[in-house]
Write a protein that binds this DNA or RNA. Structure first.
Lengths: 189, 189
DNA sequence: CGATATGGATGACAGGTGTCATCTGAATAG
DNA sequence: CTATTCAGATGACACCTGTCATCCATATCG
C-alpha cells in the first residue's frame, strides 16, 4: 500500500496536527502513539516511518503548537512589522484569559496546557519548549514600550501570570476559575 | 500479618506522604499505585485496605501537599494571628521563586507541579485542588493591605504568576529558567 | 484463653503502552 | 515494462497499569 511522497507529507502533517491537539488535551503520556495515529486516520504500525520515537513526535507537535500561538501575536494584516501595537497585545491577553481558552486546551497555549508535563520530559523536549516560550515572549515584548530589558521582563511576568491563571482555572471548579481569571484581567497592581 | 490500628494509621500516613511527593515529582498518571506503596515500604496488594481507589489517594495526597504549603504562609512563631506582615509574604515569594523550589518539585507547591495534570482529572480531584488553592490565596491575601477584594485579587495575580514562572522554569533550559524567575522577582510593572 | 476480624503479601486479571518485524501492493527508478 | 523501493497494515513482544480474590498471621473481642 505504498503512497506518493506528496501523500506521505500530508500524512505527516495530519499526524503532527493530531498530536499537537491530543497532547494538549490529554497530556504527554496519556496521548498514546496509537491514539494519535488513529486520530490522523492511520494505524499505529506506520508511525515509525515518520518519527524515530514518540519523543520526536512530541517535539514536532510542540513546535507546531507554538507556531500557532506566535501567529496569533503577529497578525498578518498589520501594516508595519515590528511596530508596537497595544491593541494587538491587549487582544491577545483578553483572548488568553477567556473562558473559551480555558474550555479548549487542545487549541490553546501549550504553556498553560503542557508546562507541567514538559517539566518531567527529557532534555530535548524541554529545549524545544524553551525555544517556543522564548518566541512568545519576544512577540509580546515587541508590543510593549520601554527599554529592551524592561519590555522582556514585563512580557515574562505577563505570560507567567496568564499561563498560571489558565492552568489554575482548568484545575478548579467554575467559581474558582472565574475568580482567578477576573483577578488577572484587572490592570496590574 | 495483621497489624495494630496505630500501625495502620502510620502506614496510611506514610502512603499519603509518599503519594504527595511522587505525584509532584512524576505527575498524577506516572505515579503508580505500586510505586507509591513500594516507596512507603509496603507492597501494592494492601493498597485497597486504605483507599477505595487511586483517585481517593490522589485527593488525600493533594490535601496533604496543600497543608504543607499553607503552613509555610502561617509561621507558628508569629505573635498575632491574622496580622498583616509584609515580611512573611515577601519571604514566601522569594522562596517560591528560588532555584531550590524549581529543583525540588516533590517538596514544592502543588499548583506549580500539578495544575496541568489536575486539569485533566475528575471533578472530585479538581474540587480538592480548588479548595487548596483557595486556602493559599486566602493566606496570601491576609498579608496584604487594601480592601478585601483588592487583597484577594492581588493574591490571585501573584500566585498565578509565581506558579506559572516555576512551571515554565522546570520545563525549560537553565538560562530560560533564570530569565523567567528573575523577571518575576522584580517588583510589579 | 479461644474465636474472629482484618492489615498486609502474593499473585492474578484484562487492558493499555512503546516499539518493532513482517507483509503487501502501489509508487517510483531504470 | 520490469524491478525495486517503501508507506502503511497487521500483529506480536515485553512491560506496566488499576483493581481484586485469596491467603496468612496477628491484633482484638468475647
Amino acid at each position: 500500500m505504498r503512497v506518493s511522497q506528496a501523500e506521505k507529507e500530508k500524512s505527516r502533517s495530519r499526524i503532527i496536527e493530531s498530536a499537537a491537539r491530543l497532547l494538549r488535551e490529554r497530556g504527554v503520556e496519556a496521548a498514546s502513539v496509537a491514539d494519535v495515529m488513529s486520530d490522523a486516520g492511520l494505524t499505529h504500525g506506520g508511525f515509525y516511518r515518520h518519527f524515530d520515537t514518540k519523543e520526536a513526535m512530541v517535539r514536532a507537535a510542540l513546535d507546531s503548537a507554538f507556531n500557532q500561538m506566535v501567529d496569533g501575536l503577529n497578525p498578518v494584516d498589520r501594516s508595519f512589522a515590528g511596530e508596537a501595537s497595544p491593541d494587538v497585545l491587549s487582544a491577545f491577553e483578553q483572548s488568553y484569559l477567556s473562558d473559551a481558552h480555558v474550555a479548549a486546551p487542545g487549541l490553546g497555549c501549550p504553556v498553560a496546557a503542557l508546562a507541567g508535563d514538559v517539566g518531567r520530559a527529557g532534555e530535548d523536549v524541554r529545549e524545544t519548549f524553551a525555544q517556543g516560550v522564548r518566541r512568545i515572549v519576544a512577540g509580546m515584548a515587541n508590543q510593549l514600550s520601554g527599554s529592551k530589558a524592561q519590555r522582556q521582563a514585563r512580557a515574562w511576568r505577563q505570560l507567567a501570570m496568564m499561563a498560571g491563571a489558565v492552568a489554575i482555572a482548568r484545575a478548579s471548579d467554575p467559581q474558582t476559575a472565574a475568580e482567578v481569571l477576573d483577578a488577572c484581567r484587572q490592570p496590574r497592581s
